[in-house]
Write a protein that binds this DNA or RNA. Structure first.
Length: 920
RNA sequence: GCCCGGAUGGUGGAAUUGGUAGACACGCUGGACUUAAAAUCCAGUGGCUUCACGGCCGUGCGGGUUCAAGUCCCGCUCCGGGUACCA
């Protein structure tokens, strides 16, 4: 029989489903291994050839671990809530659930054709009420907890209330926006509503007026990671800052743990670096400045307290509360105008002209606590309200932004660190010696910072402080297609629904648009109230809500009493290997770490971190093809001849181009405008030009995995995606090379068949040489899989099959082992050949071959002999020889004589089993 | 601007610890089989040079360390990614 991949793949895919080959359960007799893919958002476009790259890699690793005796959890599901389905619903009126269902089915169909080893019984969808019940539950738990800075963990709000009742909040060190200190008496005297208002300042899920990224075009707020360059990441619409009452998650409370716990994770350095930057730890000091003729103190955060003698002005963020307090009557008009102007500028405009310097003087003066100098207080939008204290001490000599501001408004500049030329630019570097700085003079910057800090604390001006850039996550979306909040309002105060009322299901609405009064789409739902008639929250949760704990739900997907049971969680614990794109570095990968840490704190899960090892697969780029139309004609000239004509470069569908040769008939049929096309050919062919671009419809370079599977089979697709290059590298998809791996599978098939295509294998004992071929391959494949170097494993398989082919080896003892090695990469063909070999169980249940090093022992080695580092000839010598013996043989060899040329060698370097180098 | 990657034949890439640069493929050239094509198989394929044996050059560029550098160090160029007033 010929290698009929279509029949074979269909047959085994059915077999796996019928026999539930990939179903797993808790099995304490085996070690566990959890391999996870970042689950996809099922878009309407379906999968292109780039999507399965990571899935294939994780599938190879899963299957490998299974062959190695592990109980492997390898699930798949869908991130089913999202904007595109909702936008489509707005346009067409079709319920997003229907669109989502259709898209999921298409994804599932495409995924099934590639032969993944997913346990589909564990499939989850974030839009499924049984699933989002636990998203809602987690939110309620966050509402009921606060973050205790002393213990560095989440603790119950009820305990906090007990403390308030007994001692007020003076001894509480929590992550909070509560600034005022109150006593127990004051607390107990407060109304329930006022108490609730204060508690909101402590809760991990809290409702507050905050400055949000408002996207008018999408009609919703966005999280920081959903905004790129002032535009929405999805859609690219302008985003502006707006103050709104929104739900937020106190992610910032966990900044320290998110940063420190990362050290133990096996993530790439680049990804850790991105998270480190995003969390943005900076060590500095908070210093208080008195204000002239006022009781108000200005608190600033600085990382350079050593430059305090160089402060020549202060700057407040436009949103700072101090602006109102400090502005003098004669400056009021200027300040009002300035604030009005900054409000009008969108985030995008502000980003677009960073270089435009603007600001206004408040009329107030602060007092430098060390020099007693009066320094003017300004307002400018280069200071951000959300970071530090929303106020800075400006040191123009040593901060480039302050420098630009000082130059623009003609403010004094005092150099306090030696180095640089401050008449030209600021000197920001942290090297040099303090000058013009009284008791700091002569100290290196490092020491000056320490000394300044000591002095600040000694004089009671402030204290050392660590600041983080990481902000709380805005958790409300003014959208329909998301999880409803399990929240209702009583006297304007939010109340959580009980667990037995969950899931709170998404209601039906007549239109997926905001109401006439500007409320979110849920405002259109009828009877959107509790049984007692209290109104229910109208916002829905953001995209990252459902993806923050999905890896936990896979462990116990149908449990109706808990997100995951304690026993099941104790077995599967955490994700051993997570594969996905680097684009989630600052979103999903921060939020789910936060979410997991919270669940860990409240005792729901046993691990502090969710993803032990993480690998980012590279992007598959498109490889576009071009045709060259001669201007003012419908004539197309082949690539090699185009220089003789004046041409226009046009994209052509890569699916009608093979090895850069255009199928001219298909081209004529492609679009009506090309029906009468004429061609100028070279060597009878039309050669296309090419370029690497993003894979997208508009470039006509999208390749669909189904098409590849149809033409070459899933095993070929899997092997080829891996063969393309290192997993982590971005690379263009180029179908040109696919013949190579397809041929490899055919050669493998032929090892088991004679010239008449009859299945024939031999039971003879293999030779030493044949064992060597096998065990060399076992060693290589094992090492390569362990280090995720799948491209080189494919090469190793090719070498192995080529060698077995040349030695005409069809011995069962060798071939069966080879099949097992190959299972992770090409599961279908290996199942088929395994069965033909006479096995009645799935090859998936086989054991990975055990390496026997004794077959690899060499007794001779081909030494490259170099002269002055240049390789001249090869000399085969027994490995048993000593260095002296080798030297003697080499020096007397005929070939060496030629190069020594009668001279005396200066030095002879012999590295056993490596190289011989002779210096003359 | 700052931070992190990367640059190797016509193409994708290999070289895991400083030790034979270009494995394995694609493409191309020639050959076998065939009436022919496809499929398959064999040989060649970094550049320059030589009838040939061989020689010289060669891992983005310029220097350095070393018996030996794609790999280590210093200085650049270009490309990709992250971030952007974070005090």
């Amino acid at each position: 029989m010929e290698y009929n991949f279509k029949e074979i793949e269909k047959k085994w895919q059915k077999f796996w489903v019928d026999n539930k080959t990939y179903k797993v359960d808790v099995d304490t007799s085996k070690p566990k291994f959890y391999v996870l893919d970042m689950f996809p958002y099922p878009s309407g476009a379906g999968l292109h050839v780039g999507h399965p790259l990571g899935y294939i890699a994780s599938d190879i690793y899963s299957r490998y671990k299974r062959l190695k005796g592990f109980n492997v959890l390898h699930p798949m599901g869908y991130d089913a809530y999202g904007l595109p389905a909702e936008q489509y619903a707005i346009q067409t009126g079709q319920h997003p659930a229907i669109t989502t269902e259709v898209n999921i089915n298409r994804y599932r169909e495409q995924l099934n054709k590639i032969g993944f080893s997913y346990d589909w019984d564990r499939e989850i969808r974030t839009s499924d009420p049984e699933y989002y019940k636990w998203t809602q539950w987690a939110f309620v738990e966050m509402f009921n907890h606060y973050f205790n800075n002393k213990t560095q963990k989440a603790e119950a709000i009820s305990d906090l209330v007990l403390e308030f009742k007994a001692n007020g909040n003076a001894n509480v060190d929590a992550s909070t926006s509560q600034e005022d200190i109150f006593t127990a008496e004051e607390w107990n005297a407060l109304s329930e509503k006022d108490q609730e208002t204060i508690l909101l300042n402590y809760r991990l899920a809290y409702l507050a007026d905050s400055l949000v990224n408002w996207c008018p075009k999408l009609g919703t707020v966005l999280a920081n990671d959903e905004v790129k360059d002032g535009l929405s990441a999805r859609g690219g619409y302008p985003v502006e800052q707006k103050k709104m009452r929104q739900w937020s998650l106190r992610v910032s409370a966990y900044a320290k743990r998110l940063l420190e716990d990362m050290e133990k994770l096996e993530w790439t350095d680049s990804l850790k670096e991105i998270q480190r930057n995003w969390i943005g730890r900076s060590v500095g000091a908070e210093v208080n400045f008195n204000v002239k003729d006022s009781d108000t103190k200005m608190e600033v955060f600085t990382t350079r307290p050593d430059t305090i003698f160089g402060v020549t002005f202060m700057v407040l963020a436009p949103e700072s509360d101090l602006v109102k307090e400090l502005t003098t009557p004669d400056c009021q008009a200027d300040i009002d105008a300035y604030i009005e102007a900054t409000k009008k500028r969108t985030e995008r405009e502000r980003l677009a002209d960073v270089k435009t310097i603007s600001g206004a003087f408040t009329g107030a003066y602060a007092i430098n606590p060390f020099t007693g100098d009066e320094i003017p207080v300004w307002v400018s939008d280069y200071v951000l309200a959300g970071y530090g204290t929303g106020a800075i001490m400006a040191v123009p000599a040593h901060d480039s932004r302050d420098y630009a501001f000082a130059k623009h408004f003609d403010l004094p500049i005092i150099q306090v660190v030696s180095g640089g030329d401050i008449s030209e630019e600021s000197y920001d570097a942290k090297t040099g010696k303090a000058m013009n700085s009284d008791f700091l003079n002569g100290l290196d910057v490092k020491d000056a910072i320490v000394k300044a800090n000591e002095e600040v604390e000694a004089r009671g001006l402030g204290k050392k402080k660590i600041n983080y850039r990481l902000r709380d996550a805005i958790f409300s979306r003014q959208r329909y297609w998301g999880e409803p909040f399990p929240v209702y309002f009583k006297d304007g105060m939010p109340k959580m629904m009980d667990l037995d009322k969950l899931p709170l299901e998404l209601p039906e609405v007549d239109k997926y648009l905001p109401t006439e009064t500007g409320e979110p789409p849920l405002g259109r739902a009828t009877n959107w109230t509790t049984e007692d008639g209290y109104p229910i929250e109208l916002n829905t949760m953001p995209g990252f809500a459902g993806s923050s704990a999905y890896y936990l739900r896979y462990m116990d997907p149908r449990n109706n009493d808990a997100l995951v049971s304690e026993e099941v969680n104790a077995y599967w614990q955490d994700v051993d290997l997570y594969i996905g794109g680097t684009e989630h570095a600052t979103g999903h990968l921060i939020y789910s770490r936060f979410w997991n840490k919270f669940l860990f704190d409240i005792g729901e899960v046993c691990k502090n971190e969710p993803f032990k090892k993480l690998i980012n697969q590279g992007m598959i780029q498109g490889r576009s093809n071009f045709v060259y139309r001669i201007k003012n004609s419908n004539k197309y000239v082949s690539y090699g001849l185009k220089k003789d004509y004046d041409t226009t470069e046009l994209h052509v569908d890569v699916n009608i181009v093979k090895n850069d040769v255009l199928d001219t008939e298909a081209f004529k049929n492609w679009m009506p405008e090309y029906a009468d096309a004429e061609f100028v050919l070279e060597d009878g062919k039309y050669i296309c030009g090419w370029a690497v671009e993003k894979m997208s419809k508009s470039m006509f370079n999208v390749v669909n995995p189904d098409v590849i599977v149809e033409e070459f089979g899933a095993d070929t697709l899997r092997l080829y995606e891996m063969f393309l290059g290192p997993l982590e590298a971005s690379k263009p998809w180029d179908t040109n090379g696919i013949d190579g791996v397809h041929k490899f599978l055919k050669k493998l098939w032929r090892l088991f068949h004679n010239d008449q295509n009859e299945f024939v294998i031999s039971n003879d004992e293999p030779t030493k040489a044949e064992y060597k071929i096998l065990h060399k391959t076992i060693k290589k494949i094992q090492e390569d899989i362990e280090r995720f170097s799948f491209n080189t494993s494919v090469s190793a398989f090719m070498i192995c099959v080529n060698e077995l082919n040349s030695s005409k080896c069809n011995k069962k003892a060798i071939l069966e082992e080879l099949l097992i090695l190959l299972v992770p990469f090409a599961p279908h063909i290996t199942e088929e050949l395994w069965k033909l070999c006479g096995n009645n169980t799935s090859i998936t249940d086989a054991n990975f071959p055990v390496l026997n090093e004794s077959y690899l022992v060499e007794d001779v080695y081909s030494y490259p002999v170099s002269f002055n580092g240049k390789m001249r000839f090869i000399l085969e010598l027994p490995l048993s020889l000593s260095k002296d013996e080798i030297e003697k043989i080499v020096m007397t060899s005929e070939q060496a004589q030629k190069w020594i040329d009668g001279k005396t060698p200066k030095k002879v370097i012999i590295v056993p089993k490596k190289i011989i180098n002779i210096v003359v």
